[in-house]
């Protein structure tokens, strides 16, 4: 099998993930996510923007089955995702958390191979194919030569790339990410973001929570704006992220400007206006 075959998601990657009227929360009688609907297409990079505490992380946790949904449905290709067990769900959705340090110094290749867990039998025997897939995923993010290095010795950016390779090895159709690049330095943020954007070309759908409008302008195909448990818009970055909508979202005067960048492209930037008012 060639490398691109190994990297492709296992399940039909043409079907969208359809979320309808999802409700969830932690405390009894208090809903945090208050009925949200969304369609995630494969080959599409979607970003969620929202103020702190608006329910972004709760929404992701519900989608991933970490938190039970109170109402609502999540479907993909006629499969009810919410009723699946952990290992079945892991074949649809893979998760990339915020950067963190694990307590033990696993090697990079060990970490990537953990992505194969949902595909292993009850007795957890790894096959040659499992190893090949893990290797191809590590190569995709460009870290194959660090395979034997302890994961804990890598830089933050490299660690996130390893986690992305792990999620790829899971061969899920959709990648769900919770601020995967917030804690990285400026260079690493965009290097990792570009790697994520490349994955869309392989046929994966990406859903990423971020706090930086620049990330959305840089890579997103679709931007979802979340406020107080609701999605108030889901559109292309140019439509969803205007001066008015972002000022209202963050309660801060901002201006979205379109500027010319080299190669005659037009790029939008978001500039806070607090110092000038």
């Amino acid at each position: 099998m060639n490398r691109n075959e190994l990297l492709k998601p296992l399940l039909p990657s043409t079907a969208p993930l359809v979320i309808t009227q999802l409700v969830s929360g932690y405390e009894k009688d208090i809903d945090i996510v208050k009925g949200v609907s969304l369609e995630l297409q494969p080959r599409t990079f979607s970003c969620i923007l929202g103020a702190n505490g608006c329910g972004k992380t709760t929404f992701l946790k519900t989608l991933l089955g970490i938190l039970p949904a109170r109402r609502g449905k999540v479907h993909c290709n006629n499969t009810d995702i919410l009723s699946l067990n952990e290992s079945q769900r892991a074949k649809y959705l893979a998760y990339i958390p915020q950067a963190h340090r694990p307590p033990f110094p696993f090697t990079v290749s060990d970490v990537v191979r953990m992505g194969r867990t949902p595909h292993l039998s009850t007795l957890s025997r790894e096959t040659v194919q499992d190893r090949e897939i893990s290797e191809a995923c590590l190569d995709q993010v460009g870290l194959l030569k660090l395979a034997q290095v302890p994961y804990t010795l890598l830089s933050g950016g490299q660690q996130q790339l390893v986690i992305i390779a792990r999620a790829l090895a899971q061969q899920a159709s959709f990648l769900i990410m919770d601020e995967p690049i917030s804690s990285l330095d400026y260079g690493n943020q965009y290097r990792v973001l570009d790697e994520i954007a490349k994955l869309c070309e392989l046929g994966l759908g990406v859903l990423m929570v971020t706090h930086d409008p620049a990330h959305c302008f840089h890579a997103a195909d679709q931007v979802i704006i979340m406020e107080d448990g609701f999605f108030i818009s889901a559109a292309s970055p140019q439509e969803a992220m205007t001066s008015q909508s972002l000022s209202a979202l963050y309660h801060l005067p901002v201006s979205v400007q379109r500027i010319k960048v080299p190669e005659n492209r037009i790029q939008s930037v978001c500039i806070p206006l607090t110092r000038y008012s």
Binding site: L64, S87, Q88, A94, Y95, Q170
Partner: peptide, 19 residues
């Protein structure tokens, strides 16, 4: 293998298909 995954934390392990 599941022990390896669980050492990354409960939530992350669940999303990697571990009960």
């Amino acid at each position: 293998q599941r022990l390896n995954v669980v050492s990354f934390g409960d939530e992350e392990a669940k999303t990697m298909g571990v009960r």
